[in-house]
Amino acid sequence: MVDTAMHETAFIHAAEEYTVQEEPYYLPIADEIELFETAYAQRIPVLLKGPTGAGKTRFVEYMAWRLGRPFSKVSARTGVEAEHRKPLITVACHEDLTASDLVGRYLLDTDGTRWVDGPLTRAVKVGAICYLDEVVEARKDTTVLIHPLTDYRRLLPIEKLGQVIEAADGFLLVISYNPGYQSALKDLKHSTRQRFISIEFGYPPKEQETDIIAHESGVARNVAGDLAKLGEKVRNLREHGLSEGVSTRLLIYAGRLIANGVAPRRACQVAVTWSLTDDQEVQRSIEEVVTSIFE
């Protein structure tokens, strides 16, 4: 079984203190790891492109873990290298996310107001990787912040405080973007886009996807293979009744259900068919693919 992170009680981290402790499972498809490492070394911001559930977030986590691996440097304060991990701050962008949500704001305190740094400010200060997920969803004023941070200046202006923060050395901005489902209105502007190198994430090839599903869900490899096959077939329907193919994540969910005793056909129905579409005819077609593959 995979570690699905079930803790007795939740761990509470300050945003900038959250680091990836365990090595996340990540199966490289191409040279994306090397690319990212090189980009990081050069402090070139990275744009991750790809459909939902293709592993963008996992990749960032993996890279944070990888970049945070200790170089056996001993900290003067604690004597151990435990704190020398790469902090990762992830912000899921939504349409009401404004610049001040990222930078920070005054909060009311018992005796007045207190400034609280936003996630981006924290990342800039501690030199973390700041990952803005689905960045096009955010309001346009956020780009004002992104631009000076992503070129040679690496500056974060904080208007309300009248400050400008120079980013800590370790800071890197990573954004993700799903070209598939955003409408034309919500395209990434070129002035933003051209500040990043882009790493494309597709769905993994069948063999690798089989490995991923098997690893993540704990199903037998042949079942994982069938799930990967299902994924491949269903993705053939993209643009044809389906706006987006089935994600690896969904296939893993199906796998987990199967691994825990749900009948395969049923598992695929709830995890794949019904999650993908509401169109009855398309559902039925996917169902037929499912019943062809699974007994």
Binding site: V234, N236, G241, E288, V289, S292
Partner: peptide
């Protein structure tokens, strides 16, 4: 239509 999508998927 169902079979068409089915065959397309395959």
């Amino acid at each position: 239509e169902i079979l068409r999508l089915y065959c397309k998927a395959l």
